[in-house]
Design a protein around this nucleic acid. Sequence first.
DNA 1: GGAGAATGTTTGGTATTCCAAACATTATGT
DNA 2: ACATAATGTTTGGAATACCAAACATTCTCC
Lengths: 177, 177
Amino acid sequence: MTCENRDEDMPKPLQLTESMENYLEVILELEKVNKVARAKDIAEKLEIKKGSVTGGLKSLAEKGLINYAPYNFITLTDKGKAQAEEIAYRHRVLKDFLLNILQIDPDTAEHTACRMEHAIDGKTLERLVCFVEYIHRCPRAGDDWLESFINYCRSDNPSRKNCDLCVEQIQPKYRPK
Amino acid sequence: MTCENRDEDMPKPLQLTESMENYLEVILELEKVNKVARAKDIAEKLEIKKGSVTGGLKSLAEKGLINYAPYNFITLTDKGKAQAEEIAYRHRVLKDFLLNILQIDPDTAEHTACRMEHAIDGKTLERLVCFVEYIHRCPRAGDDWLESFINYCRSDNPSRKNCDLCVEQIQPKYRPK
DNA sequence: GGAGAATGTTTGGTATTCCAAACATTATGT
DNA sequence: ACATAATGTTTGGAATACCAAACATTCTCC
């Protein structure tokens, strides 16, 4: 064996396209509800035609991400499930941030999370998780601070007139009971 | 004229692909530095081959976004410039959030902003702008609060032991001078 | 069991986006 | 001015990702 074969059995980094990530995500969802996924439901969820799904499934099967045989049910392999869970996690984190921190409406939050989940990297995601946690835990932030944020957003000419009251409320909050 | 022509002269919503948005963005950058953009520099910035650029430029010219004639310099039309500025704005907002709020390293922040800028919608972007502004302005947040966030991130077992000190510092900060 | 409905696949086609490499034009330096 | 370097374009080809519509299989219910 020569050095030409050196990276033959390397498990290549598995850089999935946005499309493939979306397939995995809905297959995971469908598996949770129905045990198995069906082409028709995948097509519906992805809002594409059923004819297109077959091609996508073949591609996923080639990558070892799903168990697929024509006319059979579709299930994720362990590898595919790990990937799908990863994507679903990114989705949850982003949606949580959009919904509960930025307080975007549920529909927009869902759709935006769906698009951003393919663009965010691991480092940024974990920092975002940490940031959301920090906001909820830090006595200087928290739910009332988030409520004030929305008032701040609504006011055309943002004033600080509520700051007095707001800052005074921090001390009692920090000494619970 | 029948109703069949009803949307003939509608200025269609101009939904640009990620690729087209990237072209516009670098053309704007190059224009700022060199007055005009050149295919070679576009290729370099986008990390694609120069042969691919010609196709992209033709597509942008067809959409009325750039002034383009073979072997000539490239400039943005007013329409193209407006679009490019819009994209550059999304980029700046996202990078600012990643860099100064989440405190991601500059390289990752740049690359992630580059990918996320195509996924974020206008509503979410404006809310993010507002959020960043709120953090900087609210006496309960601010730069020292962001510093504490990074300490919070670093601690393996996040404790609240710094909260006392931190909360006490809010009052003086709120009464400047 | 078999007809018809539901579901899945195949085929041929389109659009986008890129590459390599051959070719064309323009710019530069002596 | 003109050879050569630098830059830009064209061509043919590949990969992805989708559609429409014809075709195949499976399921359901009488």
